[in-house]
């Protein structure tokens, strides 16, 4: 598919997902209108959910595209690299230290710091030109450590429902989010997305190799800083309000790569819109499947993403194998 039609299609899918998110509720499909309570449902319950789905999905898709372009590695993704896990740890720490209640924006900032630490750790562990295997191993190590520390934090705090909360942070959800969460997360997600979008041209140059990129004027150190900061801002804030939602950043750039003629810079906008569409539609689907709302968004994205990931691993092995 050519670039512009692809862009139109993912844009349309995201718009449909947004509209569907406003239309679908536990009582079926329809716009609640008429009474005060109905308006409350529309503006205080469904609109925050749709807005967060759009922003968080977009952030995850965009971060996936940037990380894959920067590391020149098809398996790079915020969830698999431990960025989401680190962000969840940062958010949980902010909550249990009492900072989140005392200082505005401490919650998304906690997610940001955790996400930045995880991104940095994986990049140091795997090196910038790491093979897929090293990157995945580093990601697994950082994810496991983050999950263990999150679990520890939930257990140390007197909390009878630590296990359920753990599930939330590992398998994110948009259920019962409010406008408060939108105000908390959106400034940071938008800022992070701008930083990530700004890396487009440098990522294109990087496909020629680091030396060639430096020759055309790319400052590799500054690029690295922008990738880490942008990912941490966008994914950190997203995870702080919705938990870790995996595989979006992995699947979306792959589906759209051919349309962008394998130029990482051109892939960024479609990946943002594609990520938004995937998360919004997955969130609508889970509301239709389980109206009571005990199915987690992360479960649905993992159901879509994990088989895709396996297929990708097999293909990578064939390409690298003897």
């Amino acid at each position: 598919m050519r670039y512009v039609p692809a862009l139109v299609w993912v844009g349309l899918a995201a718009a449909i997902g947004f509209a569907a998110s406003l239309l679908v509720g536990p009582q079926g499909i329809g716009l609640p209108l008429g009474s005060d309570a109905a308006l409350l449902v529309l503006f205080e319950i469904r609109l925050p959910r749709a807005a967060l789905g759009f922003l968080i999905g977009g952030a995850l898709g965009l971060a996936g595209a940037v990380l894959q372009g920067y590391l020149r590695n098809p398996l790079a993704e915020p969830g698999l690299m431990g960025v989401s896990g680190g962000a969840a740890l940062g958010a949980v720490t902010a909550i249990h230290s009492g900072l989140a209640a005392a200082v505005p924006f401490a919650l998304p900032l906690g997610g940001l710091l955790g996400g930045a630490a995880a991104t940095f750790a994986v990049m140091v562990l795997a090196g910038e030109l790491a093979g897929p295997l090293t990157l995945i191993l580093a990601g697994v190590a950082v994810s496991s450590l983050a999950a263990a520390l999150t679990s520890l934090a939930l257990n140390l705090a007197p909390n009878p429902f630590a296990a359920s909360e753990m599930l939330y942070w590992l398998m994110g959800s948009l259920t019962d989010r409010s406008l408060v969460h939108v105000w908390l997360a959106s400034p940071l997600i938008v800022a992070g997305s701008f930083v990530l979008f700004s890396t487009g041209r440098a990522l294109d140059a990087l496909t020629l190799g680091e030396e060639a990129a430096e020759n055309v004027g790319v400052d590799l150190g500054a690029l690295r800083t922008r990738v880490i900061a942008g990912t941490a801002l966008a994914v950190g804030a997203a995870t702080a309000v919705a938990g870790a939602i995996g595989f979006v950043g992995l699947v979306v750039p792959h589906l759209l790569r051919a349309s962008a003629r394998h130029e990482p810079g051109r892939l960024l906008v479609p990946s943002f819109l594609g990520g938004a569409a995937l998360v919004l539609l997955a969130d609508v689907a889970l509301r239709l499947v389980s109206p009571a709302g005990d199915l987690r968004l992360g479960v649905v994205t993992a159901l879509i993403g994990a088989p895709f990931f396996l297929w990708l691993v097999l293909r990578t092995r064939r390409e690298l194998g003897p």
Binding site: Q27, V41, I95, L154, Y168, S173
Partner: peptide
């Protein structure tokens, strides 16, 4: 589990808060 929307659209005459929000500081 009663979705928040259903509670808002058709609330009970007495809403019993069986948990204190302060008891659960994170997402639950």
């Amino acid at each position: 589990r009663l979705p928040l929307e259903s509670l808002v659209l058709d609330p009970p005459d007495l809403l019993i808060f069986a948990n204190a929000p302060g008891d659960f500081r994170t997402v639950l």
